[in-house]
């Protein structure tokens, strides 16, 4: 019995003293912030791309949302935070945008910060290229910077049509994406979403119901025929200046 005690007692002492070790982990009671996009606006994890092209010409500005999330506990008072422009990853000037109030509301974990962007950017042709504004978290008296991979968020906007996700279902049977082809659909058929039409599940690469897809394409062909008949010798042109077509296996 004494022999056993000789081993057990030192072991217990070592175990108890282990509790005295200073915890060196990275936890801090100062909250941090990190950035994200508004999924309602089609944002991905690190960026959002918006086009003015589908909007009425009278609309000259648009609010793109940046989601600013906090770590730690909420506060009973509003807390300001700072964002800075990453110049090397931006191509716009301060007059091309304005950033909303940088404040986490009281008792909230996050803030939705509107960044108002302009349809016209002096230094860029937005019908051909994107405007880009990259924001980065900056530490202040209320917040530290958070996770590295979420400290930046990129806002991109343009004035050309962005290829919708469903176009991959349409491309082979209806024609590759082009500004003119999509614009014709928007102008003469309407703003469509092939996922909502039942062609396929959201995000799917292959159609579940080809008959709906083919019925849609057949209607586009008829609409294009109708347009061209109403505009003799002035057919609807594709981006390359050749007459537009809808159908299977088109090269452009």
């Amino acid at each position: 019995m004494m022999k056993i005690s000789k081993y057990i007692v030192p072991g217990l002492l070592v175990w108890f003293f282990a509790a005295c070790e200073n915890d060196k982990n990275t936890f801090s009671d100062t909250p941090s912030i990190y950035l994200g996009g508004d999924s309602e606006q089609g944002a991905t994890a690190d960026s959002v791309l918006f086009s003015f092209k589908k909007m009425d010409a009278a609309i000259q500005t648009y609010d793109l949302n940046v989601m600013v999330y906090t770590t730690g506990v909420t506060s009973g008072e509003a807390r300001t935070f700072d964002l800075e422009i990453v110049n090397e990853e931006s191509n716009v000037s301060p007059e091309d945008y304005s950033i909303g109030k940088m404040e986490i509301p009281a008792n909230s974990y996050y803030a939705k910060v509107p960044v108002t962007v302009k349809r016209e950017v002096a230094s860029l042709d937005l019908s051909q290229e994107n405007a880009q504004l990259t924001l980065r978290v900056k530490a202040n008296e209320n917040f530290e910077t958070g996770a590295n991979e979420k400290e930046q968020f990129r806002l991109l906007w343009c004035n050309y049509l962005i290829e919708p996700a469903w176009w991959n279902l349409f491309s082979y049977y209806g024609g590759p994406f082009s500004q003119a082809r999509y614009q014709f659909i928007l102008d003469y058929y309407g703003d469509v979403d092939l996922y909502e039409m039942g062609v396929a599940e959201e995000g799917a690469s292959y159609a579940d119901n080809y008959n709906i897809l083919f019925a849609f394409i057949a209607e586009l062909i008829d609409l294009l025929n109708e347009y061209n008949e109403q505009h003799p010798r002035k057919p609807y042109l594709n981006d390359n200046g050749h007459p537009l077509a809808f159908g299977e296996g088109l090269p452009y």
Binding site: Y210, N211, F214, A215, A218, L220, N225, A245
Partner: peptide, 17 residues
């Protein structure tokens, strides 16, 4: 005509009737 399903889709003729 229908393909892989029995909902029938119209056939359209490009540039003609």
């Amino acid at each position: 005509k229908s393909a892989w399903g029995i909902s029938l889709a119209p056939l359209a003729m490009p540039e003609d009737h």
